[in-house]
């Protein structure tokens, strides 16, 4: 069992501004650095647009300063061995040999080459989202949106930290890694599956709970499963986007 209650994460103003400039509506979800550079180039000659960027920098910097005081990055995780996969159900057993069955539906196919899976739940705590909600309710949607983006970026960085743990273990064993799977985000594994996944981890240790709608509280928390195995070819954690039914429309696609 792995429990970390203070993950050191650094986030810069520039990273937030880049994320704000990456408009998935415009790009169909694909990262569009060309568009960003193009926009920045245009901005130089456009006083009014430059004014927007200058204004954004100040607000983003202020929001980031306030956010840093209320980020509580925590993680709980555990390795499970994969016993078998049958009828889209994956049978796991942990260190105490207690078995767990997850119905991953279509996404069970991503575990066919696996030997072991890393279950994890991580969070940035609830203080930032309280700030976000407060800003939203007073009608400051810009500030609320920036807090939202900051929270998501912190969460993404913890995700990278999780990926690195998995990739290192796979590397040490001479194995490869599977894709990042999260209930409600991958085809076939419904959000309700989060209840069972979380039941396998002491999420209360990181002050996370799951509500009656299968939503993790604090909201900026995530549960996931990443498998490793001798038959996987990739060395880095991947995504399942290319197999998703919403791949053409999705605004979050990697």
């Amino acid at each position: 069992m792995l429990i970390i209650k203070n993950i050191d994460i650094h986030l810069s103003t520039e990273e937030i501004l880049e994320s704000l400039c990456n408009n998935p509506q415009k790009t169909g979800g694909k990262k569009n650095t060309k568009k960003i550079k193009h926009q920045q180039k245009n901005i130089k000659g456009d006083f009014l647009a430059a004014n927007i960027v200058n204004k954004m920098s100040d607000i983003v910097e202020l929001c980031l300063k306030k956010s840093r005081k209320c980020i509580r990055s925590k993680l709980v995780a555990r390795w499970f061995e994969i016993k078998e996969i049958k009828d889209e159900k994956v049978y796991f057993f942990g260190l105490n040999k207690k078995s767990l069955v997850l119905d991953l539906g279509f996404s069970s196919k991503f575990l066919k080459e696996s030997n072991t899976a890393f279950f994890s739940v991580y969070t940035i705590g609830g203080e930032l989202e309280a700030k976000e909600a407060k800003a939203s309710l007073k009608g400051d949607y810009l500030e609320s949106y920036i807090y939202d983006i900051i929270g998501l970026l912190y969460l993404k960085k913890i995700g990278t930290f999780v990926n690195e743990i998995v990739e290192k273990k796979a590397h040490d064993l001479g194995w490869g890694v599977g894709p990042f799977l999260s209930p409600g985000s991958v085809h076939g594994w419904e959000l309700s599956g989060q209840n069972l996944l979380c039941s396998a981890l002491p999420i209360n240790e990181i002050d996370v709970h799951i509500n009656e709608y299968s939503v993790l509280i604090p909201h900026k928390s995530l549960s996931c499963l990443i498998a490793i195995g001798s038959k996987y070819q990739k060395k880095k954690v991947g995504s399942t986007c290319d197999h998703c039914v919403s791949k053409e429309l999705c605004q979050m696609k990697y």
Binding site: L20, C21, N23, K26, M56, G139, Y141, L142
Partner: peptide, 20 residues
Amino acid sequence: LFQSGEFFMPEMLIAARAMQ
């Protein structure tokens, strides 16, 4: 402009703030 992708989300939010 936002709908067509010409404006990014922050630009629309800044405009809304100015309107406010």
